[in-house]
Amino acid sequence: MKKANYCVAIVFILLSGFVFFQVSGFQQTLIADDYVGAAFFPELLAWGTIVLAVLLGWLNFRNKFQEDSRSLSDLFPKEILTALEGLTVLCAYVLLLEPLGFILATIALNIALLLLFRVRSLITMAVFPVSISVIVYLVFCKVLVVPLPEGLFYF
């Protein structure tokens, strides 16, 4: 966990550096803004973030956090692959959402997730994805009149 804490501190310092870099490009506005223009607040926050990130690193160095012997591999075990596969399926779904339409894409998403979760029952594989997709579509599109992507087949 100690390494993870250092990583967090470094990420936030880098984030602050990025904010400073971006803010330096903000053009001065024409109104008299008493030095509180567009760059003022992000700059203030970036300074605050740096102070807190350094404090986090320092407290971590001084072992001020509760005893936590988890290593980086404990935090990110091999089971993380299932979550990464789920994320990949999700990204593919979003890419297919507009071309295929909500119902077809959502059926595909749910079948893919059930396969990923090693669901063996054919009945579940057949009934669940279709029913969840159709129910959500009907509730959103027909009952609440919230439009969803229509795709090639208009549903």
Binding site: L109, L113, P147
Partner: peptide, 19 residues
């Protein structure tokens, strides 16, 4: 089972964000 709940959560999350 979680295997059923998670696909429901994911579907509703995406619909919620899109709509």
């Amino acid at each position: 089972p979680k295997r059923i709940i998670i696909p429901v959560i994911v579907t509703l999350s995406i619909v919620g964000a899109y709509s």
